[in-house]
């Protein structure tokens, strides 16, 4: 019974959202606002269930870990944003989160996003015995990376063999990348439509199995 109601609600709201493709209308607006509202409500309940109650309220009420008062107070300081006279207090938890977040993230980000990626372009162009397509791949990686970097080097005019030709090759490499991304984007958007149509035809209308 509840499953059937859920399917009907989901199906009708799917159609309400797609009605936007014809033109904007109140049904679409209603569906859009309900998505935001229910998502937020659900997230709040889950956060309470999974984090705030078992990891903060319960230990404090049992007197198990008084140190939790510190994050509790910091968390409550966020709420002061609603009261203009003491809103300045909300800056402290934000500063704390920014500081610790940056401190924790910086070394790991550098390692994973910069150093390892740079290392992956420092590869031998020719390896004896390697198949031709791997050698071609290595050439594209090394020269493609260099050409794209030259395109983004703005301290010198893009003229001459190195900067001129390099930046022209670079823009081609970047355009090929955009083309591949656009192709994947089309695939992604169609996939999302397929998912909804599958739901409507099978779960709702039972026309396909």
């Amino acid at each position: 019974m509840y499953e059937t109601i859920g399917i009907w609600v989901a199906a009708l709201f799917t159609l309400a959202i797609y009605s936007f493709l014809y033109k904007e209308n109140p049904l679409y607006r209603l569906a859009e606002h309900l998505v935001v509202g229910t998502s937020l409500g659900y997230s709040m309940v889950i956060s309470w269930q999974r984090m705030i109650y078992p990891r903060l309220v319960l230990p404090l009420s049992r007197g198990e870990d008084w140190l939790l008062i510190i994050p509790a107070v910091l968390g409550l300081m966020y709420v002061t944003r609603f009261f203009p006279k003491i809103a300045w207090m909300s800056r402290y938890p934000i500063a704390f989160l920014l500081g610790t977040g940056m401190g924790v993230a910086f070394p790991y980000d550098m390692q994973a996003l910069v150093l390892r990626q740079t290392q992956a372009t420092l590869i031998p162009i020719y390896t004896p015995g390697a198949p031709w397509h791997e050698i071609l791949g290595s050439i594209v990686i090394v020269f493609g990376t260099l050409a794209a970097l030259i395109y983004f080097f703005f301290s010198k005019p893009h003229k001459g063999l190195f900067f001129g030709t390099g930046s022209k090759v670079g823009i081609w490499i970047i355009m090929i990348g955009f083309g591949a991304t656009f192709g994947f984007t089309v695939m992604g958007r169609i996939s999302l439509l397929i998912g909804r149509v599958q739901f409507l035809l099978s779960d709702w209308l039972h026309l396909i199995h």
């Binding site: 992956a120 990348g177 695939m187 992604g188 996939s191």
Partner: peptide, 16 residues
């Protein structure tokens, strides 16, 4: 998702 796929091919090549 397909939209993101091209962004992450370099991480396969780097072995990450």
């Amino acid at each position: 998702t397909a939209v993101m796929a091209t962004d992450y091919f370099p991480y396969i090549q780097s072995g990450q």
